[in-house]
Design a binder for these strands. Structure first.
Lengths: 141, 141
DNA sequence: TAATTTTACTTCTAAAACAAAAGTAATAAT
DNA sequence: ATTATTACTTTTGTTTTAGAAGTAAAATTA
């Protein structure tokens, strides 16, 4: 279950963790979709298979990108939230939104194109503000 | 061979193209490694298999991210270069470098950590300058 | 309180993707 | 003319993924 690094290149190492079709979608769902449970992630538009979802959640927790918690009054529902390490993935995701908006334009959802437009006004400010927002949602230590 | 999109989400769509362990390494090699031929990419540290390399190069060309060209005096060697669409992947790669430097620190190559430090001084300026550099290397239309 | 539903998974099997090695055809160098 | 190089393709075995079905504990409903 642990991640092996192919080299000491930071890009290669990031891809050893993030380089598949699902990992960053889970992060997206937490960041932008207000999702936090297994069921939430299962019901996303791209239809991730439950086995893959379980595998990715476990990996992300092991890596310290997600935190696995519970609510005080519920013993069943598992709440996944972003750690600082996870929140710091925001710039990568933002840049993917911008790249797709620029280069796959006509096929991208209109609401998301609006977001891209807003981000472009001041990317640094958006990332800083939204990072603050995500930090305010972090699980208490 | 053509890429199918799972949804109209820009993040999901970016991952439909970039979401594997190899695609962005080819882009990295062109951007930062002065590589341009099949042999160049084959000899990268992460040891990509030739079949996968051929598959990814074809996909990236089909998508208009890479341009496949030749040198005037050589009929054999194929030169791959970035298109504008490819150059625009730079911010994503830069953010991966920064994320890995911050979060996988001790395991990342020291030279690359120096680069990360430099980028952090002024990320926007670095991206703008380096984009200009990459554009100056583009294949003539 | 008993029955039903929900949640977070696990297991199973078939299909697809990947890795490693070997092979090929055209071109270039010797 | 021979050998080496380049850019692949092909083959075979392994790993990963997709989709469906199943399970145990907890929560809700009747």
């Amino acid at each position: 279950m642990d991640t092996k690094f192919r080299s000491s290149c930071p890009i290669s190492s990031a891809l050893d963790i993030l380089g598949d079709k699902w990992t960053l979608l889970i992060i997206r769902d937490i960041m932008f979709g207000k999702k936090s449970t297994f069921k939430d992630f299962s019901s996303s538009g791209e239809k991730i298979a439950s086995g893959i979802l379980a595998n990715r959640l476990a990996k992300l927790e092991t890596l310290g990108i997600l935190h696995k918690g519970k609510l005080p009054d519920n013993k069943k529902t598992v709440i996944y939230s972003l750690t600082q390490k996870g929140i710091e993935l925001l710039p990568i995701i933002v840049d993917m939104i911008l790249w797709s908006d620029n280069n796959l334009g006509d096929h991208v959802d209109e609401k998301m194109r609006e977001l891209a437009k807003k981000i472009r006004l001041d990317k640094e400010a958006f990332v800083n503000n939204y990072t603050g927002h995500l930090e305010s949602l972090m699980a208490a230590p």
